[in-house]
């Protein structure tokens, strides 16, 4: 993982090992199967299993990054954190929008992402925009320097906090 972080590139990953590909396949299979059950119920279960397996196989074959172990209880905590932050973010921006004085002080800031490429970095860039006051505006070619736009300068601090949460979710030592 250290070499992966040093390379820094989105595509500069080591080839996944056989065991890692199996992990990927199982993860994709679970997600696709859940989606199938949700949309279709339990009838034609076999057709769903077949389609999900095909998707999982293809995903594991084409995968470029490394899978990260799943820790369901951490995912729950992260979901709680995310829900709470969404609530704060929505209320915050709604308040600023309708306030007569329009209390915003937009600014840019660059944040160097320490997370490894792949799932952790993708999740981080995707969720920055949903946190109160921050928006991921641009990512450099190597995928490391994230240009963050903030409605208020103090909102920038929350990016660091989010990064720690994502690292914890994927059990990455920093």
């Amino acid at each position: 993982m250290a070499t992966d972080a040093e390379n820094g590139g989105q595509h500069a990953n080591m080839a996944a090992t056989k065991k890692q590909r199996w992990t990927w396949a199982m993860q994709i299979l679970v997600v696709l199967m859940l989606l199938w059950l949700l949309l279709n119920g339990t009838d034609r279960f076999l057709a769903g299993l077949l389609a999900a397996s095909a998707g999982a196989g293809l995903g594991a074959w084409l995968v470029s990054g490394q899978p990260h172990p799943w820790k369901p209880h951490r995912l729950l905590w992260f979901a709680g954190f995310f829900l709470w932050e969404s609530l704060k973010g929505g209320v915050d921006v709604a308040w600023r929008a309708i306030h007569p004085k329009l209390r915003i002080e937009p600014c840019f800031s660059t944040h160097r992402i320490e997370l490894p490429a792949g799932q952790p970095r993708t999740l981080m860039v995707a969720t920055v925009s949903l946190l109160p006051g921050t928006l991921s505006a641009d990512l450099d070619e190597a995928g490391r320097d994230l240009e963050v736009h903030a409605l208020m300068p103090e909102a920038i601090e929350s990016v660091e906090r989010l990064e720690n949460w994502v690292a914890w979710l994927f059990s990455i030592d920093s």
Binding site: S86, L87, G89, G90, V91, D92, V93, A94, W95, R96, A97, I98, L102, I104, P106, S129, L130, P132, G133, L135, A137, H149, L151
Partner: peptide
């Protein structure tokens, strides 16, 4: 109401980036 606030933000905020803030966050909560 949050959708409404997001739209108000879209109209009142001064630049592209600030408007995106209003759309992503307020509308998602809505």
């Amino acid at each position: 109401l949050f959708y409404l606030a997001g739209t108000v933000g879209l109209l009142r905020f001064p630049d592209v980036y600030s408007r995106l803030h209003a759309l992503t966050k307020a509308d998602n909560l809505g």
